[in-house]
Write a protein that binds this DNA or RNA. Structure first.
Lengths: 358, 358
DNA sequence: CTGTTAGCGCATTCAG
DNA sequence: CTGAATGCGCTAACAG
């Protein structure tokens, strides 16, 4: 910017060195430098050493932007997060970042406050503009999955993180239905005659899956499922729903769709004087770090988010391979996905129904 | 990739259109296209309209990578988060993303699991490689601030988010000391003879600032501060420390450095049979969404993270202006920063000391 | 007001 | 095994 007299035959001081500077110092052409950087095999060890020396001396670092311009690759993947700071999605996000770094990818994230179709589309465009090689969508609501399914990404492969393999060609996640069943069956096995469900917002696939798992389990023992209570993932909604729940003396057990809502439920039950677990059993979902320290410590379903992150990146790498370029076109034939099994964590918020010994 | 016969005079089908394609369609030079895209003023409305039409027809989108190569700007800012999923930093992170988008920036984030000097340096390099125009560091521990202070960023301005203006040239954050004082003074005003402090990890500036605020307040009323209990931000550590705390009958009030630890403290107190707030008062810090639904609802200090995010981006934009290029060289002369005042949220976990009417 | 000429920093043909 | 040309898609001077 400020050089008025460029000196073409020598590295200009104070400027970040470019490949040509290295070449000059090593006494080779700039292609040769390019070759050692990209680990080309056919190079005399001596020249390679000279070049590497020069690189070190100059503190040269390849310009990723220039490289991306010519290769049309960027070694970066995009992440679209559509969560509002929820613990689960945030944790997955971090796990994905870590896994991506491990795999040598840079990651660019877009956090969407609202999850309208337009915002989502804009995020994809944004990421495409930056030449991302693949995209991971976290906490996909229905709109997000639509975009992924319809391949409205200009050929950029998308891996969706959710608990239903049937909606997008590439999916990874935790088996939500299985988790919900574990929770519900645990409650049932304790002798509870009915198990209520405090559900998450039904435009989230995870919420629907947990509800489905609960319903299946209840029906499996010949019961007619109660009308579920619908929350929005927050402790506040859990509290409101918990107040209603506390009044229904015939109910003695509830499976709450996440731990945050469970906190609200616990509070409402406590306020109403219904002792947990003596009179009432509660199971959550997520195993947030605080769950073991609530009053009482919460029995819940743990999801291995690190595994999800790893799996997401692995899957994306497969999806990015050229032979899968049109994975979406096969209407599901080409589907690949894997769900991780969750785990029930037993704590003090569940107990046999009063007056029973199960 | 697969075109074997490029047709130089016409837009190749199936390829994403470039500027030249638009120019051809509009019957102008590609430079003119560049001008309408960059909102140049001197353009005949007619030509501009023709070009815009062509852009729309072709669905043309400028190639950001190519643009970045020549302008050395990228319209993206980097965010380095060194939190392990803590609620505060994560929330700030989202707020920053939102504010950056609003300001027209793309953001690339790097989440560091470990916060070693090397990792931090690597993250900075990573971001520089991608031509970020500025960097925001969240939840800076001491190593992070060192890097920012010593300008080891190759000229890329860095804004640090923390509660101490004196450590880095550009800082934004919440006034931690003020928040801690509000919490402690509230407890003192309730008539408690002593206020204990459960502190965060002392290599975090926030933790030290909250401790300092507590200590100041205690000393201000002529008391000798007790030896603080040191935790690590987690509910688990809060629980362990809370157990020790419960045994000390002379203590009736505690200011806990964050809400997560406070959850553990609440649980330990409850287990030990020390009723909150009747026998014991507890104040937290953060106001996580669950705080109002704990047993009992937690009195705490709320930080306006959205404001922090906005301020961070504003500050970064100032720092990125050319005249500030060497802000770090002035050894503090050039310092700019602003702290946002926190707010005490009164709930049910605090009450006058037993047998008093304050 | 618009077109022409360069060149950003690199990888990719092709020659030797 | 290495070097010389060519161009990725765009913006920045300069002309006109």
């Amino acid at each position: 910017m400020t050089d008025t007299a460029p000196r073409p035959t020598t590295a200009r001081a104070g400027r970040t060195p470019v490949m040509a500077d290295v070449a000059r110092l090593a006494g080779v052409s700039h292609q040769t430098v390019s070759r050692v950087i990209n680990g080309h095999s056919s190079l005399r060890p001596a020249t390679r050493a000279r070049v590497e020396d020069a690189i070190r001396q100059l503190g040269y670092r390849p310009n990723t932007v220039a490289r991306a311009l010519v290769t049309k690759r960027s070694a970066t993947i995009g992440v679209i997060a559509t969560n509002g700071g929820l613990w689960g999605p945030s944790t997955v996000h971090r796990a994905i970042q870590a896994a991506a770094r491990e795999a040598g990818y840079f990651v660019s994230s877009v956090n969407l406050p609202d999850v309208t179709r337009e915002d989502l589309a804009a995020a994809v465009e944004h990421l495409r503009d930056h030449n991302v090689e693949g995209i991971v969508m976290i906490a996909a609501n229905d709109e997000a999955v639509d975009i992924a399914r319809h391949q409205e990404t200009g050929g950029v492969p998308v891996v969706v993180v959710e608990g239903d393999l049937s909606r997008a060609p590439w999916t990874v996640g935790v088996d939500q239905v299985a988790g919900a069943r574990m929770a519900t069956e645990h409650l049932l096995s304790l002798g509870h005659e009915q198990v209520m469900h405090v559900a998450g917002p039904q435009h989230w696939e995870e919420a629907r899956a947990r509800l489905a798992g609960w319903r299946e389990s209840v029906q499996a023992v010949g019961l007619r499922p109660l009308e579920p209570l619908l929350g929005d993932w927050t402790a506040e909604s859990g509290y409101a729903l918990g107040q209603a729940l506390a009044k229904r003396r015939e109910v003695t057990a509830v499976f709450v769709a996440n731990d945050h809502m469970a906190i609200g439920v616990l509070r409402a039950l406590w306020e109403a004087g219904r002792s947990v677990p003596d009179e009432f059993s509660v199971v959550g979902f997520d195993d947030i770090p605080e769950s073991g320290f609530l009053i009482p410590p919460l029995t819940t379903v743990r999801q291995d988010f690190d595994a999800v992150g790893l799996l997401a990146i692995e899957t994306l790498q497969v999806a990015m391979r050229p032979e899968h370029e049109n994975a979406g076109d096969h209407g599901g034939e080409n589907r690949r996905g894997r769900l991780i099994k969750p785990q029930l964590v037993l704590r003090a918020s569940t107990a046999p129904v009063p007056g029973e010994r199960s």
